[in-house]
Amino acid sequence: MQLDQRKAGDALIVTPLEDRLDARVATDFKERMIELIASGNTIIVLDLSKVEFIDSSGLGAIVSSLKRMGGRGELVVCGLRETTMTLFKLTRMDRVFQVFDSEQQAVSALSGNKG
C-alpha cells in the first residue's frame, strides 16, 4: 500500500494514502511499519486522515506496530474520522493510543513530552 513518510523534528509522520486499511492490505502495512521501526524511528505519528475505513485486520496491524516498538518509543494516531474513531472506541483502542485531532497537535505534544 502507498505510505507517505516525512520527518517533523524527531517524529516520523506516516500517512497511508489509501482510503481503506483492511484485510487486503494489513500485512503489507504491518511489514512497512516494522521496517520503519527497525530502521530506528522511535517517534511515529500515524496520520489516518485519508483513511475512511479500518477493519479489525487493519487495526491489528496498528497494534502490532505498537507492540514492535516494545515500549521504547511513541506511536500516536491523528486525523481519525468519525467512523474510524468509532472503531477505536468500540475496540477500546482509544485507551491504548494517544489520539490527536491533527498532525500539528501530535508533533507538538510529543515535543512537549520530550522536553
Binding site: 477493519d55 479489525s56 485486520s57 487495526l59 491489528g60 496491524a61 497494534v63 502490532s64 505498537l66 507492540k67 516494545g70 515500549g71 472503531l87 468500540l90 475496540t91 483502542m93 491504548v96
Partner: peptide, 14 residues
C-alpha cells in the same frame, strides 16, 4: 499491559 492488547480475534468481538 502491552503484550495483552489484542491483535487478532477482534472481528468477532466487533
Amino acid at each position: 499491559c502491552l503484550e495483552r492488547i489484542p491483535e487478532r480475534g477482534l472481528g468477532l468481538a466487533i
